[in-house]
Design a binder for these strands. Structure first.
Length: 278
DNA sequence: CGCCAGGGACGAA
DNA sequence: TTCGTCCATGGC
């Protein structure tokens, strides 16, 4: 058990955990968040502008600094993406967003589950999967479960996935777990590749399309020069940037370059959770 | 390009 | 209560 204090002006727990990038964090009555990352559980709270981390593991500061992307200067990012009034409003609304550095396998599986689903449903499916096939973690007198390893999931049957409520995604999930377990898809290789090449590798996987591919690269592989585009983003790009919907991704990436992923998160969170225009 | 795939949540009727 | 629609899509 350890307590870590992190000072950071550009960080709000709610913005970061509610912007749709993660499925393992829940808000408590007192405004703190409890979640599981790797094989530890933690409670994060805000006090006087600081972030307080109570982790189930000792000497855990390095992990959290990486997971929470603490070393990055988000002030600079916010200035770079503030290219017009809409982006200034988006940044002002969700200025506490940080892009988490999540585990590759967990992110891949979670975003395959996420297709054509809703956040509460995805969260409950990931939780059930972890309870069945993950490792138990005790924290503050309660039980939590780590996300299952690729070994654990690769040995399941399609029916096992179906019984978790994953529906038609079951074969995608099984094949993805097997691909990672066999080393056919490796995080190490993907990290070493530039975005276009990593994208080709990921999108060649059965059940991984444009959207899932971009989310995995952005949320777990620290590739920021991509602009994940879904219906909300397409709508926003059409209304706020005059881009044709099918060109949303291209226009976003041309406009924001290496900051595309950050820009997309501010815009998405603002349009989806914040004040709506028109 | 168009259709379909589970299933749950949510609002309208 | 029931029905229609939506949901951070992708395969065929």
């Amino acid at each position: 058990m350890s307590e870590i204090i992190i000072k950071n002006d550009d960080f709000k727990l709610k913005d970061t955990f509610d912007c749709g990038q993660c499925f393992r964090w829940d808000e408590e009555e007192d405004g703190s968040f409890i979640g599981v990352a790797g094989n530890r559980c933690a409670r994060l709270s805000e006090r006087d502008g600081d972030i307080i981390i109570k982790s189930s593991q000792d000497n855990d500061e390095d992990f959290w600094k990486s997971y929470l992307d603490i070393e990055r200067d988000y002030g600079e990012i916010k200035r770079k993406v503030s290219v017009n009034d809409v982006m200034r409003e988006a940044v002002s609304y969700g200025g506490g967003i940080r892009i988490l550095r999540q585990e590759f396998f967990e992110t891949l599986i979670s975003f395959i589950i996420s297709q054509r689903s809703s956040i509460p449903k995805i969260k409950s499916t990931v939780k059930k999967m972890s309870e069945r096939y993950g490792e138990r973690i005790e924290f503050e007198g309660k039980e939590y479960y780590s996300f299952p390893s690729c070994e654990a999931l690769a040995s399941l049957s399609e029916e096992d996935f179906r019984s978790l409520g994953t529906g038609y995604r079951a074969p995608y999930l099984l094949r993805a777990a097997q691909a990672v377990h066999s080393g056919d898809i490796s995080e190490k290789e993907l990290l070493s590749l530039p975005t276009p090449e990593a994208r080709k590798r990921l999108i060649s996987m059965y059940g991984v399309g444009d959207k899932v591919c971009d989310c995995v690269m952005l949320f777990s592989l620290a590739k920021y020069d991509l602009f994940p585009s879904d219906v909300w983003i397409k709508r926003a790009m059409a209304e706020d940037f005059g881009a044709e919907e099918e060109r949303a991704k291209t226009v976003g990436e041309e406009l924001f370059g290496e900051y595309s992923g950050f820009a997309q998160q501010y815009l998405f969170y603002y349009r989806r959770n914040g004040k709506k225009v028109s």
